[in-house]
Design a protein around this nucleic acid. Sequence first.
DNA 1: ATAGGGTTAG
Length: 522
Amino acid sequence: MNFNIRKLTSTHFSVFHPFGVCNSSNVARTSCFSYFSTLSSDFCLESPQFVGDRIPGEQQKCVNLGSDVDVNIVLARISHGTSEDEVLQSLLSDPACDSIQISDNFVNRVLYRFKDDWKSALGAFRWAQSRPNYKPPPELYDKLVDILGKMKKMEKMRLLLDEMHEDHLISLNTIAKVMRRFAGAREWKEAVRIFDELGKFGLEKNTESMNLLLDTLCKENRVQQAREIFYELKLHIPPNANTFNIFVHGWCKVNRVEEAYWTIQEMKGSGCCPCVISYSTIIKSYCQQFNFQKVYELLNEMQGEGCVPNVVTFTTIMCFLTKSGAFEESLKIAETMKSVGCKPDTLFYNALIHTLGMAHRLQEATRVLKVEMPRNGVQPNTSTYNTIIAMFCHHLQEERAEEFLRDLESSPFCKPDVQTYFPLLKLSFKVGKADGFLKKMLNDIVNKHHLSLDLSSYALLIHGLCRANKCEWAYLIFEDMVRQEITPRYKTCSVLLQEIKQKNMYEAANKIELFMKKMKAA
DNA sequence: ATAGGGTTAG
């Protein structure tokens, strides 16, 4: 098939655009080493042991220590902010790097560590490529493409794509990443151009690749553009149910439920059958509007068409009923679901536990986790524990909260995350246990679980410690926060500054004031 | 990446 979406790609589009803001979210921290040296003298227990970043989907796997050591050698040779070429040169010139046995897993880990640092990622990748007898597999190229796209390095991404093309390494997976990154950079027309170029890469313009393009655009709220493209493409490519579901979701995403509903009619007209996903998507939209009247109407309509709601449908409805305060009605949905023989899963139980907590039925919530879930063979996840821990904290039952924290910490299936601790930290201030208990918890967070605190936990700590008249400690936390490159809120700074001044800690006060000046200037 | 957590706002 050879046709182009001429209307949309006939002009040349600038790669530059005004929204090219660098993604500088505070998600990734290279390490939390600095934490150990600063919190307080009796807080440093042991030297930090590196366990490597957690890689999503690989958390259960045993960590290969040898590989971590090698990754650290590479990390140590790379200083932040240098160019990709400097990174390459420093790795090439280092004898310690020569002895590293390169494997796909190794490169994968390096790329994961540098997922927010394209210069280091690209430099390290070039170095790996330069090693004798090593060729990165296409999937690792894809990861690098994704990193470049995420950091909005569109030209670099294009060049890498050309390089991959020469070696015949481009798959639909590569294209998917490139299109999503272009669209994410508000360069949706470039995404369309990539689709037009599919033939050049030896790939086909078919239903699958068309759906990819349409979904990319819809996820970026360009549903109208997606429609226009679809009207042209459907003359050549047959749509399937996915195609229409993508539009259902796209319309819902921009809050145009009427159009989403209309899409379902269009779907029927095209010989595609609306499925539980089509309806569940629209149901969620009505839920968000708290229009439960419409939700029930749609459930009836589904029934009329023999389309059976599933656990996702029910869980969605429950979540929003609970959010609206209709706890009993939400619990009724849970009953309905069980009575129609729909099997509960983890996310359903999470919603159920949360609802029971909101309804002050703590005993029943506990029973769900302790009895019902094991009986039905449903594993809890981190959120399950987080929900129940937050629930007990909210009801000032710290012993019970800690009991579930211990369960979570010893669970072979899931590990605590930062969110786990937030309600516990908050509670420790509320009940005036802002000392030994808090210290132990912070120690566990950092030393035992190798987690980095996030902006809200840092803020909570600083505010809480100031209020508890422990502003020396609060200042140490503040310093650590800055070292972690997490920018405190202005309010946090001013609260801390006021306390510090009252304690006549002049040097600290100067540092905070300087920091605040820089904040205002930025 | 065709659908489904919650939640702190200190």
